[in-house]
């Protein structure tokens, strides 16, 4: 790689991480909008069920995550091989496994505790009553 003393290098390597005023402004404005939408949905109670509000605000959060990843952190703009992206995907996978795995397990651990009704067990085990 370093055979001659002057080498031309494409800007990607040099400027990985550098955005422009336009990209930062776009990211900023989009983030504000997404934050305000989520805030408004919750405080003005624009939802009819728990599941609905959770899906809306989580989707908005994930959207804002990608907005900030792309416009502020410039993920995906580096030259190949894209180790930053690979590492991010791996980390995201572990995060999902740990968070949702723990929630699933911990909720399920109440299985053998006393319940007010037996329907919980029956539903899970498909036991006919």
């Amino acid at each position: 790689m370093k055979k001659s003393s002057t080498v031309t290098i494409k800007p990607e390597i040099r400027d990985a991480g550098l955005g422009s005023l336009g990209s930062y402004l776009t990211g900023f404005v989009l983030s504000i909008i997404l934050t305000l939408i989520a805030y408004y949905v919750v405080t003005a109670k624009l939802y009819s069920s728990n599941l609905q509000v959770v899906s809306i605000i989580i989707s908005l959060a994930i959207l804002q995550l990608f907005v900030q990843l792309i416009f502020f952190l410039h993920l995906g703009r580096e030259s190949k091989p894209r180790w930053n992206v690979t590492v991010f995907v791996f980390a995201a996978t572990v995060v999902l496994i740990v968070v949702f795995g723990s929630i699933w397990i911990m909720n399920n651990l109440n299985y053998n505790m006393a319940h007010s009704s037996d329907s919980y067990i029956r539903k899970d085990e498909l036991i006919k009553q």
């Binding site: 934050t35 989520a38 805030y39 919750v42 405080t43 109670k45 939802y47 728990n50 509000v53 959770v54 605000i57 989580i58 908005l60 959060a61 804002q64 995550l65 900030q68 990843l69 502020f72």
Partner: peptide
């Protein structure tokens, strides 16, 4: 840190009051 805050804002505060 701002990205982490998005999730704190959503999971702790928004879900906390809804």
């Amino acid at each position: 840190l701002d990205i982490i805050w998005i999730f704190i804002f959503t999971v702790v505060y928004l879900m906390g009051v809804s």
